[in-house]
Structures are given as C-alpha cells and as structure tokens.
Amino acid sequence: MNIITLIFILLSAMAVGSAVMMLLSKNPVKSILWLIVVFFAISGHYIMLNAQFLAVVNIIVYAGAIMVLFLFVVMLMNLNSTEEPARNMRLQMVGIISGGSLLLILLSSLMKTNKEQLVLMRVGDAGLIKNLGNVLFTNYVLPFEIASVLFLSAMIGAVVIGKKN
C-alpha cells in the first residue's frame, strides 16, 4: 500500500465518517460543522488530484461562505436550542433502506463491469488557475456570462423574498 492509497483511504474515511456524523447529530450547528469537515476532506481529494484551484475555491466558497451562511441562518433562528423532533421511525428506515439500495444497485453494477481505469494523481496542469482561467474566458465565455443572469435572479430573489414589507 503506497502513501497515495493511504491518504486516499484516510480522506475518504474522513469524508464518509463526517457525512454520517452530520446525519446523526441532532444539533444543526454540529451538523454544519461536520459538513465543513466533509468539505475539507473533499478539498484534500482535490489536492491529491492536482486540482488546486478547485480545492481552494471549495474551501473558500463552500466551507467558508456557504456554510457560514448556513450557520448564520441557524443561529438567527436559534435552532440549536430546539432539537429536531424525531421522524417517524418506519419512514426513516424505509428512507435509509431505499437510499442504501440505490447505492448498492449502482455500486454493484458499476464495480462489476468496469475494467480498471486509472486516475492521474498529483500530475497534470489542467487544474491550475492559469489554465482554467484561460479556458473559462475563451471557450466558456457564454456560460460565464450567462451565469451572471443566475446571480442576478438570485439577487432579485433575495430582495423579493427577503425584504420585509
């Protein structure tokens, strides 16, 4: 077992473990924190895959901005004090079973049939800011511009919905 595999396993365990913890913790704030751990683990994976830009953006945008926003909202609502009422156990079991079977179905067929295809680790320059920027502003100019529409509508949305009247 080489070091890469080891790190992979560690990061994966961290991601999955934190994700499970996020599900299990009753307190929303703790859930958020666990999720941030997941994001960190994923950023670790990005770095392993030599996608540094994404790794950084992931931390800044997700772990930094978005999760903090979540945290704010939870704090704002003062939800951490009130514990989430337990859901109908049977329904919960059905949920877990069906989600799990989905996973099993996909995994079993994907693992069975695919031949071994290796992933390039720690090499390749596609993930560097320079290259990405180059592509983004040449080939991807239309989506990039259009994404602004998305943000505009999100902005308007926040105004329309958020503004008290």
């Binding site: 529409v149 505009l152 509508s153 308007i156 949305g157 105004v159 329309v160 503004k163 009247n165």
Partner: peptide
C-alpha cells in the same frame, strides 16, 4: 401579487 412588479417581470425574462 405584491410590490415588486418590476422584479417579477425581470424574473420572468430571466
């Protein structure tokens, strides 16, 4: 529907 008429139409155009 509400106050933000211009915004509604803007959203529709989006």
């Amino acid at each position: 529907v509400g106050e933000h008429v211009g915004e509604y139409f803007a959203l529709i155009f989006f």
